[in-house]
Design a protein around this nucleic acid. Structure first.
Length: 598
DNA sequence: AAAAAAG
């Protein structure tokens, strides 16, 4: 029995309240006399007075704020639905009302040791971090430096998180201070926890008015992500972080029956994790209202704001009933953040802090990148060679998990089929497959049943698949940022990984940015690639500045911040880890607490 | 031009 299991058994024996006495969720597992803070809902007044433009804000505030009932207990007890411990079928119908313990890892048959979630912290030690913005709260060094509350602390222990990762060290204090944030940080570096912990803790501590309408869900926090699988993954993690806190997390995404999601929503939700399409659907059906949103997080924010998604995101964030920036707290995350996207994103933010955490692998070479010149017609046999070699080098002749990216959905189907008939157990994932097929593919890959996964860009971002040893860019993407996201599927949690790219004339537009990127990451750049790069060097569009980071604060650009050209760090930038901190100049008066790395 | 996201 694992440690987590024994904990859960002990809790089930000792920790659960007696079934006869109802205990509101936010009071469970707390010392009995713990009067909720008198904080009340200061934001409510501001809603109506300062931002009269949206919705029916004061209805919420004035009608409910005087009542003893707060939001959370209203959910579980008074709502009349989904009720407390005894509301259903005589009270011993567990499963429903008893919270499933998310720590008895359902995926424990995954290839490899129990260590799968452990993070190699040594790999993070010398990662550079850069912040800019006014009055940046200083980072913390340990979880005990931050007061997230006992229940969340307990979940941190259950997750076996020993110390915060760089992105957590910086993000958590910023978020607890109520500040908006734009953060460049690779997923797999603990980003989800970085925004979930403060949200959960904030919801537990705050007092919120009761939801005004029974059949409509009024989440307090919204987390948006660009793919269904990523939303699921965030949901699973958030469930762990909120275990036994009374904070309810619900996920909503397309391709799955909506009815079950509707039922979940009706039973109450504090944190809603969703993909944009399904959320818009729910909003149009008036089954979800955003008027009580206090926290908004966009994961893979640069994708969420690119051409395909932007209208939907604007609709959700700006054209429904969500409180405006300054009233809600907004946090944007991505491994890459192009300037144009930053400009768009700043519409959603208020006096935000920009945070850039250096790429994992930039200094420690966690991901070995190789580029090989392969003609279109030779790609398949070349891939075959790689897979054969890999199998022979592997332990017990087992195929290491290999993720193969292709450009098109058709191409994914074709390559999967070809690999299978040639004796390689492969599966494929892309947006034309049913959600069932997608989830099945991901599962057989994770468990090693099909150790080769052929994927389109649906799998490029955010997915945390432990033990991916090799990412093959069978077809290179056109955008270097997509390349960065793809290779980020390996070398995760501080482990090493290999990324191989097949390059030919069709990719010449990427030559320059690819060779620059590899150079920055101390990778060996083949001479022929440098020649390609030199030939097509006029392309400014695909070039990126910033070196070790996925982006830098566009507010520090002279074109944005005129007059600041002589003061490069005029935005109040702080460099840590000993990089170039000489330029630091607090032009915002109190701007900036130097964020010392160690 | 392709991919994702609603049904």
């Amino acid at each position: 029995m694992s440690w987590a299991d024994s904990v859960s058994v002990a809790e089930n024996l000792a920790g659960a309240p007696p079934k006869s006495a109802y205990v509101p969720p936010h009071l469970r597992n707390r010392p009995s006399a713990d009067p909720p803070a008198q904080a009340s809902y200061a934001g409510t007044a501001a809603f109506g007075n300062d931002h009269g433009g949206y919705g029916v804000p004061n209805v919420v505030g004035s009608r409910w704020s005087g009542q003893r009932n707060e939001y959370q207990s209203g959910f579980a007890g008074g709502g009349g639905r989904g009720g407390g411990w005894n509301s259903r079928s005589g009270g011993w119908d567990r499963g429903r009302d008893r919270e499933v313990n998310p720590f008895k890892d359902a995926d424990s048959e995954v290839v490899g040791e129990q260590e799968s979630s452990a993070i190699n912290f040594d790999a993070y030690e010398d990662i550079p971090v850069e912040t800019s913005g006014e009055n940046v709260p200083p980072p913390v060094n340990t979880f005990s430096d931050i007061d997230l509350g006992e229940a969340v602390d307990e979940n941190i222990r259950r997750c076996k998180y020993v110390k915060p990762t760089p992105v957590q060290r910086h993000t958590i204090p910023i978020s607890l201070a109520g500040r908006d944030l734009m953060a460049c940080a690779q997923t797999g570096s603990g980003k989800t926890a970085a925004f979930c912990f403060p949200i959960i803790s904030g919801i537990m501590r705050g007092q919120f008015p009761r939801p005004p309408r029974p059949r409509m869900a009024f989440p307090l926090a919204l987390i948006l992500s660009p793919t269904r699988e990523l939303s699921c993954q965030i949901h699973d993690e958030a469930k762990k972080f909120s275990y036994q806190t009374g904070v309810k997390v619900v996920v909503a995404y397309g391709g799955a029956p909506i009815n079950q999601q509707l039922r979940e929503l009706e039973r109450g939700v504090h944190i809603l994790v969703a993909t944009p399409g399904r959320l818009v659907d729910l909003l149009e059906r008036a089954r979800v209202s955003l008027q009580m949103i206090r926290y908004l997080a966009l994961d893979e924010a640069d994708r969420m704001l690119d051409m395909g998604f932007e209208p939907q995101i604007r609709k959700i964030v700006q054209q429904m009933d969500m409180p405006p920036p300054g009233v809600r707290q907004t946090m944007l995350f991505s491994a890459t953040f192009p300037k144009e996207i930053q400009r768009l994103a700043s519409d959603f933010l208020s006096n935000y802090i920009f945070l850039a955490v250096g790429r994992v692998g930039s200094s420690t070479d966690l991901i070995v990148q190789r580029v090989e010149y392969v003609q279109e017609t030779d790609k398949r046999s070349h891939l075959m060679d790689l897979l054969h070699a890999q199998k022979e080098n592997g332990v017990h002749g087992k195929q290491a998990l290999t993720l193969v990216f292709v450009e098109t959905k058709k191409g994914a189907d074709a390559l999967e089929h070809w690999l299978c008939i040639n004796g390689f157990p492969a599966t494929a994932i892309h947006g034309d497959r049913t959600q069932q097929e997608r989830e099945h593919a991901l599962r057989s890959f994770k468990t090693g049943k099909a150790p080769i996964l052929v994927a389109t860009d649906v799998a490029a971002r955010g997915l945390d698949i432990p033990h991916v040893a090799h990412v093959v860019n069978f077809d290179l993407p056109n955008d270097i940022d997509d390349y960065v996201h793809r290779i980020g599927r390996t070398g995760r949690a501080g482990k090493t990984g290999l990324a191989t790219a097949f390059f030919n004339e069709n990719n010449s537009s990427l030559a320059r940015s690819l060779s620059d990127l590899m150079q920055e990451a101390n990778q060996e750049v083949p001479a022929w690639l440098s020649r390609f790069a030199a030939r097509s060097s006029y392309g400014g569009k695909n070039r990126r500045g910033g070196g070790r980071f996925g982006g830098r604060d566009f507010r520090r650009d002279s074109s944005y911040n005129r007059g600041a050209t002589t003061d490069y760090y005029g935005g109040g930038a702080n460099m840590s880890s000993g990089y170039a901190s000489g330029g630091y100049n607090a032009s915002y008066g109190a701007a900036g607490v130097t964020s010392a790395w160690d």
